[in-house]
Amino acid sequence: MSCWDTVQMYALRSLGYGERLLPRDDFTICQQVTLIGSGMMWNVYFGVLALAAGFFLATALALGKASPQLWLRKPAQWFIFVFRGSPLFIQFFFAYFAFLSLKQLSPLFDPFSSAWMGALVVLFLNTAAYSGEIFHGALMSVPKGDMEAADAYGFTGWARFRKITWPTMLRLAWPAYTNEAIFLFHATTLVFFSGFPARQQKGDALYYANYFADKTFNPFIPYPILAGYFILVTLVIIGVFGLVNRRLNRHLPVARKMRMRLRAPLMR
C-alpha cells in the first residue's frame, strides 16, 4: 500500500470520514504522519474559533476591569482571577461535570458534553481571561498624551474608543497577545487528553500520537511528529500576528517600532 493510499484513507479520519478502523499492525511512518496531521484539524479548529471569539470577550473584560463602576469591575476581576488562577486541566473537569448535569435539564445542552462544543466553550472562556488581562495591562499603559490629544481634537465616547484608545491598546498588547495565541494552540492538546472523551476514535493530534505510542510501544516517533506539526503551527501564528503587528504599527517611525518589538514581555 502506497503512502498516497494511506493519505486517502486517513486524511479526514479525525472528522469521521474514510477508513473506519485505525491501523492495527505494520505501522508506517506515513500512517503516523497522516493521522496525526488529520488530528491537527481539531487543534486548529479549537484554536482559531476560541481565539476569534475570545478576542471580543477579552476586550469587554479589559474595559470592565478598568471601569470605575464597581458592578462592572468586580465581576470582570473575578472572572479573570478564576480562569487565570486555575489550571485548564481542572477547568475542563468541572466544565464536563457541569455540562453533564445541565444536559439533564434541557436537551438544549446536549452538544455541550461533546468536545466540539463543550471544550470550545472552556477554551474560549480561558483565553478570554488571559487576553483580557493582557488588554487590561495595555489599556493602563496607553500614553496619557494620546488621550489628551484625542480630547483636543474633540473625540468623545465611542468614536474616541474606536479610533484612539482601542487601536493603541491593541498595538501595546500585540506582542504579549501573540504569545497567548501560541499558548492557546498548545492548550488545545488537553481537550481529549484530560477533558472530554473521544468518540469513535475521532480525536486531535495528541490523541492519535498517543494511539500510536500505545500500539507501537515506541513514544519516540509519534511525539516528535506531533512536535513538528506544532512548530509549524507556531511559525504560522508568529507570521500572521507579525503581519497584523506591522499594520498596527504602520504609522510609527522606524526607531519606535524597534523599541516596541524589543519590549515584548511574555504575558500569560
Partner: peptide
C-alpha cells in the same frame, strides 16, 4: 479504557460507538 483490548474490540463491533476514557 484507552489502550485496552476491550477498546480494540469495540472498534470492531460494527455499529457500536466507542467512547474512550483514560
Amino acid at each position: 479504557q484507552t489502550g485496552t483490548i476491550q477498546a480494540a474490540h469495540v472498534t470492531s463491533m460494527g455499529g457500536a460507538t466507542l467512547l474512550e476514557f483514560a
